[in-house]
Simulated scan of single mutants.
Amino acid sequence: MDRLILQKAASYCAYQERTQDEVKQRLKKWNVWGDEADEIIAELISMNYLSEERFAKTYAGGKFRIKNWGRMKIRQELNRRGLSTYSIEKGMNEIADADYVAGLRELLAKKRSLLSKTETDPFKLKHKLARFALGKGYESELVWKELGEL
């Protein structure tokens, strides 16, 4: 195993949390394939530079707090990145139920204040708010429940 490539990969992982797939893609760019790539990834995991669970927690928490994404969108994205079900569940546990509902309420309130300037029909307003929240990845039952309370 090439020590220089391992160092490069370690600094790549130290910069921000990565998935094994992302590291594999980067290794391919550096012309490292097959068993050697698997060896480097195993070494990064043993040195604690690479952790799927830590990635899932950071990703889920960040997307929820910063981008106001819902659980469905976060779970879908983690799935797309090839994380294990266990890691995805650990990541989803980062989002507390109370914070989740509060986040949705805040999101709907902000969007409502923007839309109410242009949309006068309350039915259309509700529909636009629902579509917006669903697009952010919130569950439809929760969205409609919160819209009913608005």
Results as ranks from 00 to 15, higher is better:
residue 8 K to L: 06
residue 119 E to A: 04
residue 32 V to P: 02
residue 32 V to L: 01
residue 21 D to T: 01
residue 36 E to T: 11
residue 81 R to L: 14
residue 117 K to Y: 05
residue 51 S to P: 00
residue 100 Y to F: 15
residue 89 E to R: 02
residue 15 Y to I: 12
residue 2 D to S: 15
residue 107 L to K: 02
residue 31 N to D: 15
residue 58 T to R: 11
residue 69 W to S: 08
residue 127 H to V: 13
residue 7 Q to M: 10
residue 80 R to M: 11
residue 145 K to Q: 13
residue 144 W to C: 04
residue 81 R to D: 03
residue 106 E to W: 12
residue 133 A to D: 00
residue 138 Y to G: 03
residue 150 L to P: 02
residue 143 V to M: 05
residue 143 V to Y: 05
residue 18 R to V: 11
residue 102 A to S: 14
residue 116 S to F: 07
residue 108 L to P: 04
residue 66 I to W: 07
residue 96 A to M: 09
residue 61 G to H: 10
residue 61 G to D: 13
residue 90 K to C: 14
residue 27 L to S: 06
residue 57 K to D: 04
residue 27 L to G: 06
residue 139 E to N: 04
residue 88 I to Q: 05
residue 19 T to Y: 09
residue 119 E to I: 15
residue 130 A to F: 00
residue 121 D to V: 00
residue 34 G to A: 06
residue 51 S to Y: 13
residue 42 A to N: 12
residue 143 V to F: 04
residue 112 R to Q: 15
residue 119 E to M: 06
residue 139 E to T: 00
residue 79 N to D: 08
residue 86 Y to F: 08
residue 37 A to Q: 06
residue 2 D to N: 15
residue 108 L to C: 06
residue 146 E to V: 14
residue 33 W to E: 10
residue 18 R to P: 01
residue 52 E to H: 11
residue 101 V to S: 08
residue 76 Q to Y: 12
residue 146 E to Y: 03
residue 79 N to W: 13
residue 5 I to P: 00
residue 95 I to Q: 02
residue 116 S to I: 12
residue 120 T to R: 13
residue 87 S to A: 15
residue 88 I to Y: 11
residue 138 Y to A: 04
residue 16 Q to V: 10
residue 23 V to G: 00
residue 41 I to F: 12
residue 79 N to Q: 14
residue 24 K to R: 15
residue 122 P to M: 09
residue 45 I to V: 14
residue 141 E to A: 07
residue 98 A to E: 11
residue 126 K to T: 09
residue 146 E to F: 00
residue 33 W to I: 02
residue 76 Q to P: 01
residue 62 G to Q: 13
residue 118 T to H: 12
residue 128 K to W: 01
residue 94 E to N: 01
residue 11 S to G: 01
residue 83 L to H: 05
residue 50 L to S: 04
residue 39 E to S: 12
